[in-house]
Computed example of a mutant assay.
Amino acid sequence: MEDFKRLSLNQMTTEQWSLREAIEGCARAEVPWIAPWRHKVEELGLSTSKRLIKDAGLKVSSLCRGGMFPAVTASERQKRIDDNKRAVEEAAELGTDVLVMVCGSLPDRDIQSARQMVADGIAQLVPFAKSYGVKLGIEPLHPMYAADRSVVVTLDLANTLAEAYQPNQVGIVVDVFHVWWDPDLYNQIHRATGRILGFHVCDWIIPVPDMLKGRGMMGDGVIEISRIRQAVEKTGYNGPIEVEIFNEQIWNQPGDETVCQMKERYLTHV
C-alpha cells in the first residue's frame, strides 16, 4: 500500500463506471484517492457521493471541473460564474480543497478577449472560493483545445493568471498530456513552486487515435513522465497523483482491469 499512497483514480479513466462503481473499484484495488467529475456526482447525488466516499475510506484529490468562463453575453458569463460557485460548494462538501479549472474556449474569434474573460471570471470566483477553503487549480490544456476547451494553453499563461493571487487561493494543475511538449516546461514548473495543486498522468501515444479520447496508459507513449514528476516534486509538491485517461478502448474494457493496469504502470512509469 505504501507504494500507492499518493495514487488517485481520476474518474474519467474509468468513464464507463458510475461514481458508486468507481468508489467500490478503488476500495477493492486499495487505491486511496479518487477524483470525481461533477456530472458523475450529480447522477449519484452530492450527499450520497460524500457518504459513499467516506464509508469506503477514500480521500478526494480534486473535483473536476470548474471554469468555462468565456461567453458571448454578460448574462451567460454570469450563469457560468454561478455554476462555478456551485462547483466550489460541491468540492467543499466532498472534502477536497482543489477545484480543477478548465478555463473555457473562445465564444468568437477573439482569443485575447476570451483570455480576459477567464481572468475576470477567476477574479470574481476567488473570494467565494476562499470563503469555502477551496483553491482554484488552473489546468492549462494542450493548444489543440484552444478553440473548444481552454484558451489557457501553456504553463506560462496559467502561472501568470495564478500569480495575481496568493498561493492558497489560486494555483496550477500540471497534466503531462497537456504540457510535455513545451520547450519552457521545466522553467515554468519551477516558476510554479508553492502553487502546484495537482499532478495528472497518462501518456501521448502515436498516432493519436482521437483528439479528445486519445490519451494512453502510462508507458505506451513518448512522455518523460518520471522526469516531469521529479521536477514537480522539486517544487515541494507531495500531494496525490491522478491518473486521468480519455480513451475509448480503455473505457470499453472492464474497470477493474483498467485499475489493475493503472497500478502496474504507476509503479513502473511514474
Results as ranks from 00 to 15, higher is better:
residue 226 S to D: 08
residue 123 A to H: 14
residue 51 R to I: 00
residue 247 N to K: 01
residue 31 V to L: 05
residue 194 G to M: 13
residue 125 L to M: 02
residue 149 R to K: 08
residue 256 D to A: 12
residue 209 P to C: 11
residue 240 P to D: 06
residue 141 L to I: 02
residue 241 I to S: 11
residue 122 I to M: 05
residue 125 L to R: 03
residue 194 G to L: 13
residue 208 V to K: 15
residue 175 D to E: 11
residue 24 E to W: 13
residue 205 I to K: 14
residue 185 L to M: 13
residue 45 G to W: 03
residue 12 M to R: 14
residue 174 V to M: 09
residue 196 I to C: 08
residue 72 V to R: 10
residue 44 L to K: 14
residue 26 C to N: 10
residue 200 H to K: 09
residue 232 V to E: 01
residue 86 R to E: 10
residue 13 T to S: 09
residue 234 K to A: 14
residue 270 V to S: 10
residue 25 G to W: 15
residue 153 V to G: 12
residue 61 S to L: 07
residue 247 N to M: 00
residue 54 K to V: 00
residue 188 Q to C: 12
residue 129 A to C: 06
residue 164 A to Y: 14
residue 8 S to P: 10
residue 253 Q to A: 13
residue 109 R to Y: 00
residue 120 D to Q: 11
residue 66 G to L: 01
residue 120 D to V: 04
residue 55 D to V: 01
residue 243 V to S: 03
residue 49 S to D: 00
residue 196 I to N: 07
residue 230 Q to H: 10
residue 123 A to P: 06
residue 248 E to R: 15
residue 219 G to P: 09
residue 197 L to D: 10
residue 7 L to N: 08
residue 50 K to H: 09
residue 188 Q to W: 07
residue 87 A to N: 04
residue 125 L to D: 02
residue 171 G to A: 12
residue 160 T to H: 15
residue 10 N to G: 08
residue 80 R to P: 06
residue 66 G to S: 00
residue 263 K to D: 10
residue 19 L to K: 11
residue 52 L to K: 00
residue 108 D to Y: 15
residue 266 Y to N: 05
residue 142 H to G: 04
residue 64 C to S: 07
residue 147 A to L: 02
residue 137 G to S: 12
residue 228 I to M: 01
residue 63 L to H: 02
residue 237 Y to A: 04
residue 122 I to G: 06
residue 132 Y to G: 01
residue 50 K to C: 06
residue 205 I to C: 10
